[in-house]
Design a binder for these strands. Structure first.
Ligand SMILES: NC(=O)c1ccc[n+]([C@@H]2O[C@H](COP(=O)([O-])OP(=O)(O)OC[C@H]3O[C@@H](n4cnc5c(N)ncnc54)[C@H](O)[C@@H]3O)[C@@H](O)[C@H]2O)c1
Ligand SMILES: NC(=O)c1ccc[n+]([C@@H]2O[C@H](COP(=O)([O-])OP(=O)(O)OC[C@H]3O[C@@H](n4cnc5c(N)ncnc54)[C@H](O)[C@@H]3O)[C@@H](O)[C@H]2O)c1
Lengths: 226, 226
DNA sequence: CAGCGCTTGTGACCGCGTGCACAAGCGCGG
DNA sequence: CCGCGCTTGTGCACGCGGTCACAAGCGCTG
């Protein structure tokens, strides 16, 4: 079990980690529903669209407060607002991409990226040949400028797309510059101070997990499915 | 709790899902150790490299069998063999990439992809303008050819990198063609039959989770960290 | 060959997450 | 205004996963 530290802090409304991980699913489903000008939605319908269980939807949403109406369902517009607020999507989150190789460029060119408040404000690479190149609306800048870039553009999230050996050093620079949220695509363990949130996306791991289940050819547990 | 079906099947040695998800971490750490010509490794050292707890390492590895020696540790070479065997990395896994846009091309050009038995054998796109284009050593083929491609090249894993609206249709085609393992990068819920393993990588979800913790500025639980 | 130090393997405990099932409660129709 | 149907919100029980702590066991040394 994850050790919950800071037991003294009251921490008003704490939302379970598992719920946090599902909020984006609900958010996406809610936007689809809102597009169809549907006013209210039941937990059953939302569960269907988000690919989860209805009871879980209700319990998850109850952590945000009681915004549903019994016998009717949830007001879609209101719920979208509550979920976005909880996820912090009402704010603007400046993002920096570190490492502009195959993956970094794909991320930089990805339109859907900036769709919900995540705005790419800097592209940083260590390769002098790459510095100065334009990618979309931005120009690649040197790593030495990272610290001032983060400060001036209020970078909140750093996305690491460098080769694995460089990842820790890049993460250290990000942390030193004051970035408190990092998404790491490099296949290596990166250590950050406890106050920094680090998440990872690891293609090799995903493939190997698929490989395991394929080899053992047994049904993969529900949780691992969408 | 995930519903475990097939209670009648004996299922000799069943490895917990959480353990399976960590095996790739151990595998990566073991390769690093093997590179340094180190003969044995303790659970403590392995835990350090994999970024997990030593007790967890021991319990995880005990599920593969008792390959350690008390007072000494684990034989690195032997353990690499056991973990690869368990993960199915001793086999060759032909992979097809569906959708050759920004992301699909990045994946197709990714060298580290084929490093451990995962070999890209087909690139498929629905856009007639893209069909026939060369990407690396391969040529983009039309979706209509998918079924015969899967059969002839023994495609085991399908990677979906199409826009979200096309993802379900592509998944359906893959399943119909006999692919039993799918990795989905499109930000949408994809439904597959229970015998098919589906995993997803969702950038928007990851960013939104980071956004949540950043906004609530509290320490993220250990499990979410690397 | 006995003792010692080190490391594994695991028993025990505990909390989180999940799903069931139902009471509470809202709105509508008669 | 009453009752009925529908949906939420949640109490409860259960199992998985995580951690601790220690007994078991291996090898080395004297
Ligand atoms: N390409 C993919 O599809 C893919 C998929 C999954 C994971 N990954 C991982 O993502 C990372 C990037 O992959 P890629 O294919 O884009 O690699 P790449 O070699 O094409 O690009 C890496 C980039 O990082 C830059 N770089 C190196 N050191 C740096 C530093 N210290 N600071 C800033 N920039 C630095 C390089 O100059 C280069 O531009 C790798 O760790 C890879 O394993 C890639
Ligand atoms: N680009 C990124 O960095 C990135 C990151 C995370 C997630 N994604 C997701 O990955 C997917 C692809 O992103 P992208 O930026 O490469 O998009 P893209 O538009 O550049 O490429 C999509 C490709 O899919 C092809 N396609 C469309 N319908 C198809 C079908 N039915 N069968 C086969 N191919 C089809 C298109 O012709 C196109 O080549 C999207 O769902 C996106 O949300 C992209």
């Amino acid at each position: 079990m994850p050790r919950r530290e800071e037991p003294d802090i009251p921490e008003a409304r704490l939302i379970p980690e598992a719920t946090v991980a599902r909020l984006p699913l609900y958010y996406r489903a809610l936007l689809e529903i809102a597009d169809q000008s549907i006013g209210t939605v039941s937990s059953e319908q939302l569960a269907e669209l988000a690919g989860v269980n209805a009871a879980k939807v209700r319990k998850d949403l109850s952590h945000l407060g009681s915004y549903g109406t019994r016998g009717v369902g949830y007001d879609v517009e209101h719920l979208v607002g509550e979920v976005s607020r909880e996820l912090g999507l009402t704010r603007d989150w400046p993002v920096a991409i570190l490492g502009l190789g195959n993956l970094g460029r794909a991320l930089a060119n990805y339109r859907g990226f900036g769709a919900r408040g995540f705005r790419i404000v800097a592209l940083v690479d260590a390769d002098p040949d790459k510095v100065g190149q334009a990618v979309g609306d931005l120009t690649i800048e040197p790593v030495e400028a990272l610290s001032s870039i983060v400060a001036q553009r209020r970078v909140a999230i750093g996305v690491i797309a460098t080769p694995a050996p460089a990842a820790q050093a890049v993460a250290d620079r990000l942390v030193a510059a004051g970035v408190a949220s990092i998404l790491n695509f490099a296949p290596t363990v990166v250590v950050v101070p406890p106050e920094v949130t680090l998440r990872k996306v690891d293609l090799a791991t995903e493939l190997q997990i698929l490989s395991f289940y394929q080899q053992h050819r047994r049904r993969v547990p529900d949780r691992a499915r969408v």
